[in-house]
Amino acid sequence: MLTTDTLIATPGPTEIPHRVLLALARRPTNPDLDPDFFKRYDEVRVMLARMLGTSKGNVVVWVGEAMSGLEAAVANLTVNGDKVAVLSNGVFGDAFADLVVSYGGVPIIHKVDYGKVLDPDKVKAFLRSEAREAELVTMVHCETPSGTLNNLKDIAAVVKSEGKLLIVDAVSSMGGTEVNASWGVDVVIGGSQKVLNLPSGLTILAVSDEAWERMEKVSYRGFYLNIRLWRDVVERMEFPYTHSEPLINGLLESLRMIEEEGLSNVYARHRAISRGVVNAVEVMGLRLVPESEEYSSPTVTAFYTPDGISEAKVREGAFKYGVLIAGSWGPLKGRVLRIGHMGYTASLNMMTNAVVALAKALNDAGYRVKVSDAVEAFLNGVGL
């Protein structure tokens, strides 16, 4: 290898900024007893509440990879026999149905092709017909395996108009594009290892008043995934179990960086870098997984490998040039490559390196592209 540090250009986990690394390395105390830790935890909640359009009292941050939040949302809101409307246009949308079954619910699935996005009008028709008896609805905002971004605002409005509660997997979108609980989202789930540029290990939950009320009625009896136990932890100065002080320190620094840049600027940066990467991919003659560029997520670009070219070989080639890119999951596994441009990595310098490594790897695998054309397309797409 001629490289030193490898650029992580995957859709999570991601690169960690220097400031966040320093925060992670800060000497810990005892988060169960240190009053200052509760202040830092509360500051995190305040900034997340501003980002997510809710109040800090509705924000929970606990120890556990984001999947724990997805499971907890279903566990805390579902009782045996409940019908749950599952909106799915991808691998993780499908996974919600499995979680519903695990907790005794009955999933009613509205499924569209992985390259498409959810249509609010069709969702409304579905909720009024097959899923009219469902009180809960699940969906994924950004489907990373296919690189699509659903219209959360309009779908949330549809779900609310039908009087149902909405659970949203925003793990790969939170912080990279607007996610606003006030649109009518009852549980928003995020994770630390995506746009927020931390190691995995924290789940972020924003819970509506209506969802809290339903949780009281469901009265989930588990412990580790019991969201109700976290509602007043700052007021009580007591966590259900020991928190991760390094990860909270890192999250606090990450959120400060976002606020310093300004949320609107952060979102604009993600959109610009995404346009650049999509432009480069298309100039290289590669086909996006989303059927339309407007369906593409600002945090990840997914595209098919050329016929006869090994997806694994392209990834290995890019790694040789110092860039780690990803394959995909489920039915797309082995056929699709993905470049993540999340948080810190949604930047001109890092994505220029990623585009060069991809182009060189494709050439090495026998698919001819002109590296300079790919870079020029990227820069033009960004707006330079």
Rank of each mutant, 00 (worst) to 15 (best):
G366P: 09
N380A: 13
V100Y: 05
G163E: 10
I204E: 14
T4Y: 12
L384E: 03
G317Y: 05
E311V: 10
S55G: 07
A170F: 04
A206N: 07
P145F: 00
E178M: 02
A97Q: 02
T301V: 13
E133A: 08
A326I: 02
Y367T: 12
L87T: 06
N150W: 01
V375M: 02
A95N: 09
S254V: 01
M1V: 10
L205M: 15
G250M: 02
L149I: 08
T138L: 05
I258S: 05
T148I: 05
L379E: 06
I273E: 11
H110K: 04
L152E: 09
A97R: 00
G327E: 04
S297C: 01
Y241M: 07
V46Y: 08
E133M: 06
A326F: 03
L70W: 04
K153G: 09
L48C: 02
F378E: 03
I258A: 09
E238F: 05
G322N: 06
R335D: 10
A181F: 00
R315H: 04
Y41E: 15
T29G: 11
V281G: 11
M342F: 13
K111W: 05
K333N: 13
V79W: 07
T203D: 01
L337T: 02
W212A: 04
V168K: 11
A25Y: 07
T345S: 12
